[in-house]
């Protein structure tokens, strides 16, 4: 931001020509970081204290789950107890206890995906304009268009299909614990596999598109800039010198503006994504640890259900992480520019 102010004062490029969009309702974006890593550090330091309530609530829920699993294991040893009835009761208790926290975290995940998508819609046109201004016309069009398409597909897939499927997956897992049906377990695993691979395929395709775009459109833009330089070199020396200096100054200014907007944009994306990601991650790790502890004394089905819930949290982490990854990679490509 300091370099941009200097360039603006030198009259090279107006600072207000590329206005940086601010994420709505988010106070975590650093105002004037000295560097990108300083900004990241500031965001992380703000996020960590916010996790304490989630950690406390998660720990309490896991302790209760431990108690339920222990109770199921103990009651099963009583003479005259029916395995099916005990497992059914255990499934209902565990499912009910984890439902509230799961539902709120799923809501948080969906909200994060929507915020990232909406912020991308504000930021990408500014980045595209800045890159076009610094000579990357073809590259900026390809990056902007491609990112919007993949972001729309990914966020629509997540909010309209994958999130409802998480609930279906959890229903299948609870039913599996209650009834002990292998078919239900296989169906749940298939669903989880489909969701994981759905996300992976979109990210693989996006990464491939970005790589191809960088080569093809980058070459086109570089060739256009080289042609412009050749034209200038063929002019009268004084005029050529003036044109060359002016072109270089404008390119430097546009590049600096692009970098400033891009770095702020990346910090804003991280600010939107980090706290929800950490909150879901805390729940994921707590459930993993709970499943590991329950494994010592719990029944196979009740431990499996806790693992399945942690698996659902893992899917949620993957979804929010995928959206953030897509935007960050796109911004990095914009920052890299031409060549």
């Amino acid at each position: 931001m300091n370099l941009l102010n200097t360039l603006s004062m030198a009259g090279i490029l107006p600072l207000t020509e590329f206005p940086v969009p601010e994420p709505s309702g988010n106070l975590w974006v650093p105002e004037q970081p000295d560097s990108f890593w300083e900004g990241v550090r500031e965001i992380v330091l703000k996020a960590l204290p916010e996790l304490q309530p989630a950690l406390a609530e998660g720990l309490w829920a896991c302790l209760v789950i431990l108690a339920v699993v222990l109770l199921v294991a103990v009651v099963r040893t009583f003479p005259g107890s029916t395995e099916q009835a005990v497992e059914l009761a255990g499934a209902v208790a565990t499912g009910t206890l984890l439902l509230r926290s799961t539902h709120s975290l799923v809501g948080l995940g969906v909200d994060t995906v929507r915020q990232l998508s909406e912020y991308g819609k504000l930021l990408l046109p500014v980045m595209a304009a800045a890159l076009a201004g610094s000579g990357g016309t073809v590259t900026s069009a390809a990056l902007y268009g491609g990112t919007v398409i993949f972001d729309t597909v990914l966020s629509s897939l997540i909010t309209r299909f994958l999130v409802p499927m998480i609930y279906v997956y959890l229903c299948l897992c609870v039913a599996n614990q209650a009834l002990g049906e292998d078919t239900l377990k296989k169906l749940a695993d298939l669903l989880k596999w489909l969701m994981t691979w759905g996300l992976k395929i979109i990210l693989y395709l996006f990464t491939g598109y970005i790589g191809l775009t960088g080569v093809v459109s980058g070459t086109t833009d570089a060739a256009a800039m080289k042609a412009a330089k050749l034209t200038v070199s063929g002019m009268i020396p004084v005029v050529g010198g003036i044109l060359s200096d002016a072109s270089e100054a404008v390119l430097i200014g546009a590049d600096a503006a692009k970098n400033a907007v891009g770095i702020y944009g990346m910090l804003a994306v991280l600010a939107i994504w980090l706290r929800p990601f950490l909150e879901i991650g805390v729940q994921y790790l707590l459930l993993k640890a709970t499943a590991a502890v329950c494994g010592i004394f719990g029944t196979k089905r009740s431990v499996g259900l806790v693992k399945d819930y942690s698996g659902a949290m893992g899917l949620l982490l993957a979804m929010t992480g995928a959206c953030c990854f897509l935007l960050l990679v796109s911004l990095i490509c914009f920052l890299k520019g031409v060549g």
């Binding site: 046109p125 500014v126 304009a129 800045a130 076009a132 201004g133 902007y144």
Partner: peptide, 10 residues
């Protein structure tokens, strides 16, 4: 529109 805007500014 975005690309044209950037080119115009530049």
């Amino acid at each position: 529109a975005a690309v044209a805007k950037g080119e115009e500014i530049s």
